[in-house]
Design a binder for these strands. Structure first.
Length: 718
DNA sequence: AGCACGCCGACT
DNA sequence: GTCGGCGTGCTC
């Protein structure tokens, strides 16, 4: 019987910790169980990843596990080994990844809360308190709060000292609170044997593509495919394969970019595959999340559809992983634990010997290159979209909407039959900054290193990074000069311009500031479909919608905003965005695309406009080769964050010197401040490592990261 | 991540 | 002289 448990914690620590298993729960603790453990004067949830009968070399007293939270482990051994590998490959903490794999309510943590003692109650009367102490006592009469909550409520500089003093005098007590959740556990069941009808009405090319992939179905080995085809054809193939997989009694993990999880998609899935589908998305309530999670774990769902986090769902017996819209950047989790669901899909498919199908009609050049070179590209050729394209040159910011475009739009709106137009422009707000003409003062966010955007409709200044807003300012607080608008205008300006040019027309602005709920989104889009809106104006937020009614005219204004990003994939992002914006163009009836840009020759804009992925790819891959960027090298972006810039500077230099010690050919850039050097009060310092040799880079990363103490996030590109 | 400990400047 | 800020280090 094992006496010790090896436990990982949901903290940014690479270590595992050893705890003593108390006699009474020796046969209760299992690998994969959640346990409650004391940790540095706190009690937190840990995950048992191993059992052992003797401790190894720890020369201090080990602490006891406080409580075992599961009768039935939350993690299977195979899931543990997958997440271990995945977190290592992502350079993030295993414990944090495990924590992210569970519904949040499954991870109880004790927090030290402060409450008032009887003496404290009395102390208010006998007037033995100073002003600061009184303030705290008054707050605590209303309830018990955590220290951080008190700090937020009471703006005293030396708060922790005052609290300590009150505690010493016995007026204030510490309480540890812990909300534990009982898990309702049902028995695991086998795959529900549903015999799904095969669809023999598929056309030749689709049947062929599906055949190539499903040939290896019964073989139980890892095989990757890249499906380069239109959305419609991809979906047909996916469903065909899903049925085949379910018929051999295996399960399917279907990953989609965040935004595509709409009601329409849900309907499509349940219609085609029955009730055994679990759909995960960000708008599930805590309760729903728990029940879906348990449903998946116990095998009551045979297909799981979800965004990037679904790669961490407890699905077993996976026969197929689908990674649709592979190019989509939302597969990257940027917050800790940071990971790329695409990498996770590859690892999980490898580990469980399942098929992996990535698919897109505009693949990332990295994935396309690899698929071609390793021979797993399945391509269904498509005619380029039939559309008339006009690219107008206009200096960025000079004209809002080019005269010629106004005429074109006017023509469409004035005809006998209303012919609605969609216009894209990708900057929120009215202007991205306001400025005092006398002293050059520009209002900036208190907590982020960015200017405050001015939003005219809501009459406020808004930080686009942390959401902090302040009321509209008219005069400069420094010199009382009258503030004027900065030159980089946003979508509200475009809206104003259109309204003045087309009075009486129904113009609706679709951006994340105006359209808040899913209901609003669907309401506007359906109104647009009924031709009750003349011009639908939107940002990227509109482009992301997948159920936009097709139109015959799309206008894109200044898509080059992305090209100014300090990112080696800026062209690819531009290509993808423009492509996405053209998605809502009708296939028939003389569709027209207008682009107004200061950079009409740029290949990413041009090839996207003409729906020519091939040409874009050829040019982009040339540039990547020339500059030695991925896929021709491996590039790691290390981001250090913290409140203290000095510490960050020192820590980031450590990486630099550590890489130099490894005598392998690794290019380093930085350390440098990230392009937005501070977000939510935390500074951001960046170091980039680049190398042809993957192994060398991994080794250097591992070596240097273990020396760095600050919070770090690694983004890998290859 | 939190949370305590310990070392240097501005004040009762 | 002390108080209290904040950098540093540790957590089985």
């Amino acid at each position: 019987m094992s006496r010790y448990a090896e436990v990982v914690l949901g903290l940014p620590l690479t270590k595992t910790f050893t705890y003593v298993i108390p006699e009474i729960c020796r046969d209760l603790v299992k690998v994969g169980s959640r346990v409650l453990v004391p940790f540095h004067r706190r009690e937190i949830t840990g995950f048992v990843v191993g059992l052992k009968s003797r401790k190894k070399g720890e020369d201090f007293e080990l602490k006891d596990i406080r409580e075992v939270l599961d009768d039935e482990p939350v993690f299977s051994e195979e899931f543990l080994s997958f997440t271990k590998e995945f977190s290592t490959a992502s350079f993030c903490s295993w414990g944090e990844m495990l924590q992210a794999a569970l519904p949040p309510s499954y991870v109880p943590k004790s927090r030290v809360k402060m409450s008032l003692s009887e003496e404290g109650e009395k102390a208010i009367q006998n007037d033995s308190l100073d002003k600061e102490e009184k303030e705290i006592i008054k707050l605590l009469r209303k309830g018990t709060y955590t220290r951080t909550h008190i700090k937020r409520k009471i703006k005293q500089k030396n708060l922790s000292a005052v609290l300590a003093r009150l505690e010493r005098r016995g007026l204030v007590l510490r309480q540890s609170d812990l909300k534990k959740m009982r898990r309702r556990v049902e028995k695991e069941i086998d795959l529900t044997p549903v015999q799904l009808e095969m669809d023999f009405s598929l056309d030749e090319e689709i049947r062929k593509a599906s055949g190539i992939i499903s040939e290896s179905l019964g073989r139980n080995i890892f095989l990757p495919f890249y499906l380069y085809a239109s959305r419609h054809k991809r979906e047909t193939i996916y469903f065909d394969l899903i049925k085949k997989i379910l018929n051999i009694r295996k399960r399917v993990l279907f990953l989609v970019p965040e935004i595509r999880l709409t009601a329409s998609l849900q309907e499509k899935f349940t219609k085609k595959l029955g009730e055994n589908v679990a759909l995960l998305h960000s708008q599930l309530t805590a309760k729903q999340r728990e029940s879906e999670w348990e449903r998946i774990r116990t095998g009551r769902a045979d297909v799981v559809v979800g965004p990037r986090s679904a790669i961490l769902s407890p699905l077993t017996n996976i026969g197929l992983i689908i990674l649709d819209d592979e190019h989509d950047e939302s597969y990257l989790q940027k917050e800790n634990p940071s990971y790329d669901a695409r990498r996770g899909a590859l690892l999980r498919a490898k580990q469980f010997s399942s098929l992996l199908i990535s698919g897109s009609s505009i693949p990332s050049v990295e994935a396309y290159f690899l698929a071609k070179r390793l021979g797993y590209l399945v391509e269904i050729k498509e005619e380029a979209a039939d559309r008339k394209v006009e690219i107008l040159r206009e200096k960025a910011g000079k004209r809002i909407v080019e005269e010629r475009l106004i005429r074109e739009i006017g023509q469409r709106l004035s005809g006998k039959k209303p012919d609605p137009v969609i216009i894209f422009f990708n900057r929120r707000g009215y202007v991205s900054f306001v400025i005092c003409p006398c002293c050059r003062y520009i209002p900036r966010c208190e907590r982020c290193d960015v200017t405050m955007s001015f939003h005219k409709k809501e009459g406020k200044l808004l930080c686009h990074y942390c959401g902090f807003s302040s009321p509209k300012m008219h005069t400069c607080p420094e010199c009382w000069g009258k503030l004027v608008f900065g030159k980089s205008f946003g979508i509200e300006v475009v809206e104003e311009e259109l309204k003045s040019r087309f009075p009486g027309k129904r113009i609706v602005c679709f951006d994340s500031d105006r359209v808040r709920t899913r209901k609003d989104q669907e309401e506007i889009l359906s109104r647009f479909g009924e031709k009750k809106i003349d011009i639908l104006l939107g940002t990227q937020f509109l482009a992301h919608q997948d159920n936009i009614p097709p139109v015959s005219t799309v206008v894109i204004l200044y898509p080059e905003i992305f090209l100014t990003l300090p990112d080696f994939r800026a062209s690819q992002k531009t290509f993808q965005t423009v492509s996405q914006m053209t998605n809502c163009l009708a296939k028939e009836g003389d569709p027209r695309l207008f682009i107004q840009t200061s950079n009409p020759e740029h290949y990413s804009i041009r090839h996207a406009a003409f729906d020519d992925y091939g040409c874009f790819y050829d040019q982009e891959i040339k540039y990547r080769r020339l500059m030695n960027y991925p896929p021709f090298s491996r590039l790691a972006e290390i981001l250090l964050t913290g409140e203290n810039l000095r510490t960050l500077a020192r820590e980031s230099r450590k990486i630099f010197s550590c890489v130099k010690e490894q005598d392998s050919p690794i290019e380093t850039w930085g350390p440098a401040l990230a392009s937005v050097s501070r977000i939510r009060g935390k500074f951001r310092v960046q170091v980039v490592l680049k190398s042809k040799k993957k192994r060398a880079l991994d080794r250097a990363l591992l070596k240097s990261l273990e020396r760095v103490k600050s919070r770090k996030t690694v983004f890998l590109h290859e």
